[in-house]
C-alpha cells in the first residue's frame, strides 16, 4: 500500500517537516501565498534539492532513480505546460480516449491543437496526463484553480475515484476551505514553511 512519508524534509525556507499520508488518504494543504506550498510539492517530486528524506511505501526517494520516482509520485503543477502541437502527443501510447469523458471532454480532444485549448481545458487534460502514469501518490497544486463549478466537481470526483481504486496517497493544495472539507480527510496549514496545528477537514471553517 503506497504510504507517503516525509522525514525532516527541508528545502530552501521550508521545513524541516514530518508528515505521513496513508494509502488512499487525501491531505489538504493550505496557507498564504509564499508560505512554501509549491516548494514543498516540488521537493516531494524531487524537482528541487532538499534535505531529509521522502519515502513511498518505505522506499526512499534517494534509493530510486529520479525519473522513476517522479512517475510514482507525480506533481501536477498549478499552470500546465505543453510542448507538442497536439494534445494527444503528450499522452502515453495506448491511452484510452474514453477516459476524457471523466473530465467532460470528448474523445476527439486528443486531436486538438494545444494553442486552441482554454486554460481550464488544459488544466483538466494535464490531470488526465498525470493519472495516465498510474502514480502511487499525487501532488496536486490547485488542480481546480481555473475551473467552473461543473468541471470542478468532475475533477474532484475523478481524483476521489482514482484514490480509491489505486489506494493512492494525495496531497492537495487548495485555497478553498469548502473544497478542502469536501475532498480531504485531514487539513494542514503551512505558515512560513512550518505546519500549523492540523485540523480535521470536517471541522475546518467553511
Amino acid at each position: 500500500m503506497p504510504v507517503l512519508e516525509l522525514d525532516a524534509l527541508a528545502t530552501r525556507h521550508v521545513g524541516p517537516l514530518d508528515l505521513r499520508i496513508d494509502a488512499g488518504e487525501c491531505v489538504c494543504l493550505q496557507g498564504p501565498s509564499g508560505s512554501g506550498k509549491s516548494l514543498l510539492l516540488r521537493a516531494l517530486a524531487d524537482l528541487d534539492p532538499h534535505a531529509g528524506e521522502v519515502r513511498l511505501d518505505g522506499v526512499a526517494c534517494s534509493a530510486m532513480p529520479a525519473p522513476q520516482w517522479r512517475r510514482r509520485v507525480v506533481l501536477v503543477a498549478a499552470e500546465s505546460q505543453w510542448w507538442h502541437a497536439r494534445v494527444g502527443a503528450h499522452f502515453p501510447p495506448g491511452f484510452d480516449p474514453a477516459q476524457l469523458s471523466a473530465v467532460d471532454l470528448p474523445p476527439a480532444a486528443l486531436d486538438w491543437e494545444v494553442v486552441r485549448c482554454s486554460t481550464g481545458e488544459r488544466q483538466r487534460l494535464a490531470l488526465l496526463r498525470a493519472l495516465a502514469l498510474q502514480p502511487a501518490a499525487l501532488l496536486l497544486d490547485e488542480p481546480t484553480g481555473n475551473l467552473d463549478a461543473g468541471s470542478c466537481a468532475a475533477v474532484e470526483a475523478l481524483i476521489a475515484a482514482y484514490r480509491h481504486a489505486h489506494a493512492a496517497a494525495v496531497l492537495w493544495v487548495s485555497h478553498d476551505a469548502r473544497q478542502a472539507a469536501r475532498v480531504a480527510q485531514r487539513c494542514l496549514t503551512l505558515h512560513d514553511g512550518r505546519f500549523m496545528a492540523g485540523v480535521p477537514a470536517a471541522e475546518a471553517p467553511a
Binding site: A45, A66, V74, L75, A77, E79, Q81, W82, W83, L133
Partner: peptide, 13 residues
C-alpha cells in the same frame, strides 16, 4: 524552464 520541469515531473529523463 517551466516546460522542461513539467516534462521532468512526468518522469522524463
Amino acid at each position: 524552464r517551466a516546460v522542461i520541469e513539467a516534462r521532468l515531473a512526468l518522469g522524463e529523463r
